[in-house]
Amino acid sequence: MAEQVALSRTQVCGILREELFQGDAFHQSDTHIFIIMGASGDLAKKKIYPTIWWLFRDGLLPENTFIVGYARSRLTVADIRKQSEPFFKATPEEKLKLEDFFARNSYVAGQYDDAASYQRLNSHMNALHLGSQANRLFYLALPPTVYEAVTKNIHESCMSQIGWNRIIVEKPFGRDLQSSDRLSNHISSLFREDQIYRIDHYLGKEMVQNLMVLRFANRIFGPIWNRDNIACVILTFKEPFGTEGRGGYFDEFGIIRDVMQNHLLQMLCLVAMEKPASTNSDDVRDEKVKVLKCISEVQANNVVLGQYVGNPDGEGEATKGYLDDPTVPRGSTTATFAAVVLYVENERWDGVPFILRCGKALNERKAEVRLQFHDVAGDIFHQQCKRNELVIRVQPNEAVYTKMMTKKPGMFFNPEESELDLTYGNRYKNVKLPDAYERLILDVFCGSQMHFVRSDELREAWRIFTPLLHQIELEKPKPIPYIYGSRGPTEADELMKRVGFQYEGTYKWVNP
């Protein structure tokens, strides 16, 4: 592979701008107003304001973009700056750019259920340069409990009458099928589907988006991507930290609602779906819905739930269990780990287990898709061969690698495990991989909904998990304890083995 010439960040961002501006969906010269509902909250200060700053800094926003914060707290732009700027990672050389960014910011205080507050917000936006005809993007960085009041008031008082209007809704989209349907029906009564952007930030990850290209742009994968060759698929999300004093919020939802029903299920769809007619948003989402419709409700015998306990040999936070978090209700049975087996009941995947695993306070930070292939028929190497695996590593250190057998150097035919490896950090030294939120917010500006969740996708996802969630809430089974920093409950490994996964433990990928 030829040595790549190092590029400056300015040059890299210039390439990104060229890609972005050559499309006809990006209205570079139009006025846009980006409204952050819930501007005083954690999500706004840690993710949304920093993301908008990065896009502005790199010249990736339309030229005439204004940012308006809205929340109940009586704040000023200076207050917003004070709480969000520490997350910007701005350099001293960017000081003038930073001043320009905050000059485009404003803030309006108001209630979430008060019509007069929204009329005041609308008047404020109209007073901005060309504000009355601007395109408006409303980001709901809010708890779902206020979605209905907020969307109703936005629709009645704050819509642009000339430009387009788009609304970005953060997960969780309800707690179960019934609450999700209620919320979807409410929002759909106010906005068209092409105006609604239900954001799952995992769909903005580079390697998640790469799944489609790997599958449908490489001839070698087509013939082997089926039940005849693939023994099982494992989708993993692991965090090495616990709730760390923020367990009160987590306890309301648990690990299945927080990660599995959305992030992991979306990745499953991209692995299992048929080739779409095109890369058009609805063509892709149509195929994802077909996959979900082929999955039956989760069966309790295919589920393992766990909850982390303190590690007596650990240090600091590792010595504390979930129930030691003062914000967690006493005696909570909320799971911090889950392993679930699903089956896609169609011709391509009949009988292939899709194993979804996620948890907190585990032994490493990792998100990946792992396809394990069947054993080689007619073994001539005296059971020395391990199964081939194709691994798409989402985070950290984005990579695609194939675990395969090669001859060990020497005189004899002794096979050993090795890999074919594409590590993004080595291959793409001159490429700026956008943060997931950067990519998705740019998608909203461009009107691309491919990486957002459609209402029928959402409904099918909740259909699969709601009976299990209701059973857990009714019966309150005690989750299996696992030690902070471990791989999780051993019962999860036993479940995976029972459905056909072979864990060798003899080879570990190392970032080159």
Rank of each mutant, 00 (worst) to 15 (best):
S117L: 03
A134E: 13
M212K: 01
E148R: 14
V213W: 06
K45C: 11
I199P: 15
Y112V: 03
I196H: 00
P223G: 15
I33N: 02
P143K: 06
Q83I: 05
F191H: 00
S184F: 06
L20T: 02
L137I: 08
Y107C: 07
G247N: 11
R17E: 05
Q195W: 03
N126M: 14
S189M: 09
W225M: 03
L128K: 09
T236Q: 03
L7N: 09
S117F: 07
V68H: 00
G248H: 12
L96G: 08
Q133H: 14
E18M: 07
L128V: 08
N210G: 10
R74H: 05
G69H: 07
S160E: 05
D176M: 03
Y49M: 04
E63M: 07
W164G: 03
T145Q: 12
R9N: 11
D30Y: 08
Y70N: 02
K89E: 13
L211E: 00
Q209L: 08
R219D: 02
V5H: 11
V233Y: 01
D58I: 07
E85F: 06
D194M: 03
H201T: 12
L61H: 00
W164K: 06
N153E: 07
G204E: 15
D58C: 08
L142A: 07
F102M: 05
S29R: 07
N185D: 06
T145A: 14
F56D: 02
K238A: 10
N153Y: 06
Q4Y: 06
V77Q: 05
A2R: 09
S179Q: 09
M37R: 01
S8T: 14
M207I: 14
G204F: 15
E148P: 14
R120T: 07
K82F: 06
S157I: 08
Y118Q: 00
N122K: 07
S117I: 01
A149V: 07
K46G: 03
H124V: 04
L61V: 06
R257V: 09
K238Q: 15
I52K: 00
T10Q: 12
A217W: 02
M207Y: 15
Y112I: 03
I15L: 11
H186Q: 13
E63S: 09
T31V: 11
S84D: 02
G41Q: 07
N185L: 08
A71L: 00
V146L: 15
I230Y: 01
K238D: 15
R219F: 03
T91D: 04
G69E: 00
F237L: 04
I199Q: 02
N122Q: 09
G23W: 15
S160L: 02
Q209H: 15
E63A: 10
S117W: 04
V233W: 01
K47T: 13
E63N: 09
T236K: 03
L121H: 00
K97W: 02
K45M: 11
I52T: 05
D100Y: 09
P172G: 08
V208E: 09
C158W: 00
F26K: 06
R104V: 04
N210F: 01
I15Y: 05
Q4A: 11
A109L: 05
L140Y: 04
V146F: 11
V208T: 15
Q195S: 06
L75H: 06
I167G: 02
D176S: 09
Q4I: 05
T51A: 07
I15W: 05
I48A: 05
S179M: 06
K205F: 14
K89R: 13
R215P: 00
D251R: 04
E193M: 02
F253D: 14
F88T: 02
D24K: 06
Q83H: 06
C232F: 02
T76I: 04
A25Y: 15
R182T: 09
A44H: 00
Q83P: 02
E99G: 09
A78H: 03
M37Q: 00
T65L: 05
S157L: 12
T243C: 14
A127G: 11
R246T: 15
V208G: 15
I230R: 02
Q111M: 04
Y202E: 13
L61Y: 00
R175W: 09
H201A: 05
F101W: 02
G204W: 15
T91Y: 08
I196L: 06
D176L: 03
V12N: 05
N218A: 00
P86C: 06
Q161T: 09
F138H: 00
D181L: 11
M37T: 02
M125H: 00
G59H: 06
T10R: 10
S84C: 14
D181W: 05
E170M: 04
P50L: 00
A90C: 14
H129T: 10
A231T: 10
A6M: 14
R227V: 04
G204Y: 15
L16C: 04
I224V: 14
V108P: 00
I33L: 11
R198G: 00
G163T: 00
I220E: 03
S184T: 13
F241V: 15
Q4H: 11
L183Q: 11
Q209I: 13
E252K: 13
Q83E: 05
Q195L: 02
I234W: 08
E63L: 08
L177S: 05
K152S: 08
R182L: 11
L214C: 15
R246Y: 12
P240V: 10
S73F: 04
E244D: 12
D176H: 07
A2T: 10
Y139I: 01
S8I: 04
H201R: 09
V108E: 03
S189Q: 12
M207P: 07
L55E: 00
S73V: 05
I35Y: 00
M207T: 15
H186N: 07
G41W: 02
L61W: 03
L142Y: 13
G174R: 06
H201L: 06
A141T: 05
M159N: 05
E244C: 07
D228V: 06
L43N: 03
F88E: 01
R257Q: 15
I52S: 02
W53Q: 00
I196W: 00
W164A: 06
V146G: 06
Q133G: 08
N122S: 10
D200S: 14
A231L: 04
I255E: 13
S40A: 11
Q178P: 08
L211A: 07
I162N: 12
G69P: 01
E18Y: 07
D228H: 15
K45G: 04
G69C: 03
L20A: 14
M37G: 01
D79A: 06
R219Q: 14
C13V: 11
C13Y: 10
A103D: 10
V169S: 06
T243G: 09
A103G: 09
Y139N: 01
N165S: 05
S8K: 13
L55T: 05
D100C: 13
Y202H: 15
P62Q: 02
L235P: 01
R257G: 14
S29I: 05
V68G: 02
A149W: 12
V169Q: 13
K95S: 08
V68C: 06
L61I: 07
V68S: 01
S184M: 08
R182W: 10
E99W: 02
K97R: 08
W164F: 10
S184K: 03
Y139G: 01
I162W: 09
R72C: 11
R120H: 11
G23F: 15
R219V: 13
P144K: 11
F101T: 00
I36K: 01
F88L: 12
S84Q: 06
A71M: 02
N135I: 02
R74P: 08
H124Y: 08
Q22K: 07
T76P: 03
Q133P: 15
E206M: 10
K82L: 08
L43T: 07
F88Q: 03
E148A: 11
D24Q: 13
N226L: 01
F101K: 00
L203N: 15
S29T: 14
A44P: 02
H155F: 08
C158K: 00
S123A: 13
I80K: 00
P240E: 15
F216P: 00
P92V: 07
I230W: 01
D79V: 03
I255R: 01
E170C: 08
M212W: 08
F216S: 10
